[in-house]
Design a protein around this nucleic acid. Structure first.
Lengths: 191, 191
DNA sequence: CAGTCTGGCTAATACTCATTAGCCTGACCG
DNA sequence: CGGTCAGGCTAATGAGTATTAGCCAGACTG
């Protein structure tokens, strides 16, 4: 259904710009050329719009992460690829990522628990890569947890400031940020 | 006035936990042992509570940054000190920093413009340090803008996950993160 | 002890919203 | 052509909420 997709896209844009609480059904309707109540012919509720956006975002991100990890061997290559996937997702889907990070508070159970679980899983994936690198001696870090937090936070930042029409291409950002990740991990060898 | 301070502190905690829009005056009143309307004997409005929190936060942060820069010479030392100040502020005042970053959308003009101007000034300060380091040859970076964004984003992240009673002390986080900043900048000499 | 000020309370005001009800039109199907 | 139904609309509904009005007790003050 094209109409539902239009509505989801409009909701995403408005949630990003105004926040979930401050966005009204009338706003969303206005963005797709109808009145607020008419939206209910296409979507279940405002909360459902948010839940779908946040859940599919985390699932996509986790899928991208798993594909990146599965396609590589060794902590250095894995950290690079996982960071590439992370940053690329945050650049390419910056609205989804932005809302996904900021609006957990507005998400109601059981969706909230599900999204938090996915997020915890995602964080654990990065931490494991860093810990493996430390164990194998190819990373030199004070705290593996701090490094994985730092790498994840960098991606979140990209979702905030990245613009498709900015001076830096998506690839340029992706490559520099995966270098950042290796620098943060204190890479000592290409093992 | 002790009462006003209590109210501001309660509002800060609630804005952090629930968000500005989702926090009611009755919630804030409840947190300090009075009814919602009674708050108006002490504060002008809900919006005023937010404006004070956000403005003083950015002013404090900028003051800490200027003190750090003024007390040091050379890009390497300056980046280290500025990052220390940045991370220490975000650890020590994580609620203020958290709200300050997330609730600009809820801030109404002219406060919003003022806070955004302060924030732009703060960002510019970091970028200048990195650019100076590149010009002097002691940093090796792809894009000075990206590095300064990255360093700032790391601080924001600290405000999200740092806990006073966590396993890492404030100093431990501050020191590791200032190392992170130098690693991101690709420090080549202690010039 | 009368007066005033502080800081609380409840009730009223004046919205704003998500959601539901019920109607209407035009497209498509037989 | 008669019927159905998708997808719009306006008008309720019902709740929530910032803020204001107006009242009141108790603590100082002279």
């Amino acid at each position: 259904m094209s109409r539902s997709d239009d509505i989801r896209a409009a909701a995403l844009e408005l949630f990003t710009r105004l926040g979930y609480e401050a966005t009204t059904m009338a706003d969303i309707g206005g963005a797709v050329g109808m009145r607020g109540p008419s939206l209910y012919k296409h979507v279940a509720s405002k909360q459902d719009l948010l839940a779908r956006i946040m859940t599919t975002t985390m699932e996509d991100l986790l899928a991208a992460h798993r594909a990146a990890v599965a396609s590589t061997e060794g902590p250095v290559a894995r950290l690079r690829r996982a960071t590439e996937a992370h940053v690329r997702y945050h650049a390419r889907h910056r609205l989804e990522a932005f809302v996904g990070n900021r609006e957990i508070r507005s998400l109601v159970e059981p969706h909230r628990a599900r999204v938090l679980a996915l997020r915890a899983e995602y964080e654990a994936g990065f931490r494991e890569i860093v810990e493996a690198g430390v164990a194998e001696g190819c990373f030199k870090v004070g705290s593996a947890r701090l490094v994985s937090y730092a790498v994840l936070d960098l991606g979140m930042g990209v979702a905030v400031w990245y613009r498709e029409d900015g001076e830096l291409t998506e690839d340029a950002v992706v490559w520099q940020y995966s270098d950042f990740a290796l620098r943060l991990a204190g890479v000592t060898s290409e093992g």
